[in-house]
């Protein structure tokens, strides 16, 4: 059925439409550098969206929970076997993406007989010396690097709106986590609604859904540099929306 090139291209194009449609209702995920390291933020309705992957690497995911889980296991296995056989210093986000995740995702996307992964992923890595690094991975296996910040959101207007805001942000890496948290929450909302509705959307969200945030920070003791942001911290930082 797909042995003729134009049919295969059609089928891939149909998959893209299908995946975009599936991802439309997914909750966005934000990652921004901050003075302490990298702050990740999302809003969930029961399924975790932010994960610790290795000592200095975290994952943010939007999409189908079962697909996220499968890919999370792929990258966890690869990272830990590599860290054990060689050294934790040899486990890098770029290698995990380029040699682990991206080929698996691309293969599933292009093999028309198989179900593709309904995902969009974000990988954050705290560098040993240089600036934090952020990567995004799309359902077709394409990955990109970013430094200023990342918003995972449905393609189209939401992404464009967020990218424009990201460009205007003063360097978040210079500001403390609690200040960057504010920007991250607004960016997240921008992934779901237009700019003028951001404040009211955040207020509604805080009442109806659960905030989730994590921090990669070099100042944490021990080899593991990821910790979830506590609900006490988040309550404190979201008071301006809750009080009004």
């Amino acid at each position: 059925m797909f042995d003729e090139p134009y049919r295969w291209v059609d089928a891939v194009s149909n998959r893209r439409e299908y995946l975009e449609e599936q991802l439309k209702s997914a909750s966005p995920v934000v990652a921004l550098p901050c003075r302490e390291g990298i702050l990740l933020l999302s809003v969930n309705t029961g399924t975790q969206k932010l994960y610790e992957i290795y000592d200095r690497i975290a994952l943010g995911a939007m999409g189908h929970p079962a697909d996220v889980e499968r890919l999370r296991n792929v990258v966890l296995d690869m990272a830990h076997v590599e860290g054990f056989n060689r050294s934790p210093a040899d486990v890098t986000a770029r290698r995990l993406l380029q040699f682990g995740l991206a080929p698996v995702v691309k293969e599933a996307f292009e093999e028309i007989g198989r179900a593709p992964y309904i995902i969009r992923l974000l990988i954050a890595e705290l560098g040993h010396s240089e600036r934090p690094t952020l990567y995004t991975l799309n359902y077709d296996g394409v990955f990109k690097e970013a430094h200023q910040g990342v918003l995972l959101a449905p393609f189209g207007e939401a992404t464009e709106r967020a990218e424009a805001v990201l460009k205007k942000l003063s360097d978040p890496a210079e500001r403390p986590m609690e200040a960057v948290f504010d920007d991250a929450l607004s960016l997240w909302a921008l992934g779901e609604v237009e700019a003028e509705k951001v404040d009211s959307h955040i207020k509604d969200t805080l009442q109806e859904r659960s905030l989730e945030a994590g921090l990669l920070s070099s100042s944490l003791p021990g080899p593991s540099k990821y910790r979830p942001v506590t609900s006490d911290e988040m309550n404190q930082w979201t008071q301006k929306w809750q009080a009004e």
Binding site: Q48, E52, I53, Y54, D55, L76, H80, G83
Partner: peptide, 11 residues
């Protein structure tokens, strides 16, 4: 590595 892997995979 076992303890780290368990914590990260089993949440």
């Amino acid at each position: 590595h076992s303890f780290k892997y368990y914590r990260r995979s089993q949440l």
